[in-house]
Nucleic acid binder design. Structure first.
Lengths: 72, 72
DNA sequence: CATTAAGTTGTCATATATGATAACCGGTTA
DNA sequence: TAACCGGTTATCATATATGACAACTTAATG
């Protein structure tokens, strides 16, 4: 599995979960203490997030990180 | 939860899983296409691995990434 | 039409992950 | 003792994540 593909997968998963919670990128980003533009990049798969970034997002979404990375 | 703490948690988890498979850092690192020194850093919690690095490690360990990040 | 909200994109500085190399340590084994 | 193995640590160059900011688009709303 190639890097860009993985980034898209995790990005799409974050988007899916975020939308299921009915929260905007803006709000979710703020809960993670960063800007909406950065959240957009992550969801678009244009970055390879670190473990701690994924953890922050999972916390903000109110889910476990295991559920955040649960794909395939 | 602070960054360093999270890094240690994931590092310890990788070590635990690696040892349970009875494989050395050297061998696991090679399966991930990097050097043993880098695996040592990750396990020691001295780095904040990216999503793709965690994925590579989970694949090398023959487990799902959900199981790799399954802690607490 | 003007304003606002949501999202995208480009750019920047700074921090740090990655991957490699080498030196080193402790234990084991020939 | 010497050689080897598993692991640690320091250091380096390079790539890229992070976080912030601004400009832009589109859609909805006053």
């Amino acid at each position: 599995m190639k890097k860009e593909e993985l980034q898209k997968i995790i990005g799409n998963r974050i988007r899916l979960l975020r939308e299921s919670k009915g929260v905007s990128q803006q709000v979710l980003a703020a809960m993670c203490n960063f800007e909406k533009g950065n959240m957009s990049r992550i969801e678009a798969g244009r970055t390879n997030p670190t473990f701690t970034t994924l953890y922050k997002i999972s916390q903000a979404l109110g889910i476990k990180i295991t559920d955040l990375v649960d794909f395939e």
